[in-house]
Design a protein around this nucleic acid. Structure first.
Length: 329
DNA sequence: AACGGTCTCAACCGCGGATGG
DNA sequence: CCCATCCGCGGTTGAGACCGT
């Protein structure tokens, strides 16, 4: 048995709102508010509409200070970086873009930004069609943690908006100091703004990777060896990093517990010349160095496909800490 | 001008979580 | 605790706009 409908669909009007209905809705709310109850609102306001429809119309269209029209490049960048950090939590993203609604941002992402990112990422690889797991319709079962995250607790953008620019994606200009807020919001304690040079991997152009805040990364042999010397081989394009962060975030959702080894494995493969994101996603090719979590004797090499990794929810070694490295240039 | 394909975005749907009795 | 109700969210839909032929 399904859930009871919120109203009798046969007795309410549906579809686009007329100017008269808008005026009624706006007028009533400006005078009385919604009375704390949207379900009974239509009756009081004299509207033949479902309460949920009234709420949606108000929040997404009629509410004061709603911004309509094109998104600015700065807004694009904010959306990019927040999506990379927290995924499709549109309401949280919207909270950081004054005047924009979650619905607006969701539509904008689905129709414009996603394509922008895809074209940017695929152009950086020899493979023509880049596939990302977070675009997979089968990923609808992903459930988000319900915790409310204070934006300033995980995203340095809010301390200095100019730091959050994402460069080199479809012509975005790089600032001298950019901070990529690609961090796992569930683990703000892993974040540090330290610029300690000991554990930085410096690219000769573009960015450096600070993983100092994440012991898991710095303890890994492959990774450490690069930290101590062979730096030139780990340079990755920023859009590739961004894609990785998104994948990392996606797997984290799927497994509800994942310690960041996928990204690390990808780095290892990248260093070894096997780093092809498309292969990592499909599980083909030579990239076999994916550790399913844990450390020492608990480690077990496994299939490298993202889907396998994502579905491996039974691994006892999943999850000590989840963390994403911090990127800045 | 007519047509068909694609894109956009307002609106809908159903679910999970919060809340209160 | 349990249950009913409501809210808010994210995914999806479909009408109309737009565009290319």
């Amino acid at each position: 048995m399904g859930r009871a409908p919120c109203c009798d669909k046969t007795k309410v009007k549906r579809g686009p709102w007329s100017p008269e209905e808008d005026s009624k809705l706006r007028g009533y709310i400006e005078k009385y508010g919604n009375g704390g109850n949207w379900i009974s609102f239509p009756l009081k306001a004299g509207l033949r509409r479902c309460g949920k429809s009234c709420r949606l119309r108000w929040l997404n269209y009629l509410r004061p200070n709603i911004k309509h029209g094109d998104f600015s490049e700065e807004e694009d960048m904010i959306i990019f970086s927040l999506f990379a950090a927290i995924g499709s939590r549109w309401s949280i993203i919207a909270a950081h873009l004054p005047g924009r609604t979650d619905n607006d941002i969701k539509n904008y992402w689905n129709t414009k930004l996603r394509k922008k990112l895809m074209s940017s990422s695929s152009s950086s690889h020899s493979s023509s069609a880049m596939t990302s797991p977070f675009l997979n319709p089968n990923s609808q079962d992903v459930k988000r943690p319900s915790t409310t995250i204070s934006p300033s607790s995980y995203n340095p953008y809010f301390e200095n908006p100019t730091k959050a620019l994402i460069s080199n994606i479809d012509g975005f200009e790089a600032d001298n100091h950019q901070i990529f807020p690609f961090v796992n919001p569930n683990y703000p304690q892993d974040i540090s703004l330290s610029e300690s040079s000991n554990n930085n991997i410096s690219g000769t152009s573009g960015f450096s990777l600070n993983h100092n805040m994440c012991g898991h990364y710095s303890n890994h042999n492959n990774f450490s060896s690069d930290v101590s010397g062979n730096r030139s081989e780990i340079i990755m394009k920023q859009e590739e990093i961004m894609m990785l962060m998104m994948i990392d975030n996606h797997i984290d959702q799927r497994t509800k517990g994942y310690d960041g080894d996928f990204t690390q494995g990808y780095y290892s493969n990248y260093i070894n010349g096997h780093g092809d994101l498309k292969q990592m996603i499909s599980g083909t090719g030579t990239n076999s160095n994916i550790n399913m979590g844990g450390s020492g004797s608990e480690s077990a090499s496994s299939s490298s496909s993202i889907s396998n990794l994502a579905e491996n929810k039974s691994s006892g070694s999943l999850l000590q800490h989840k963390c994403l490295p911090y990127f800045y240039s």
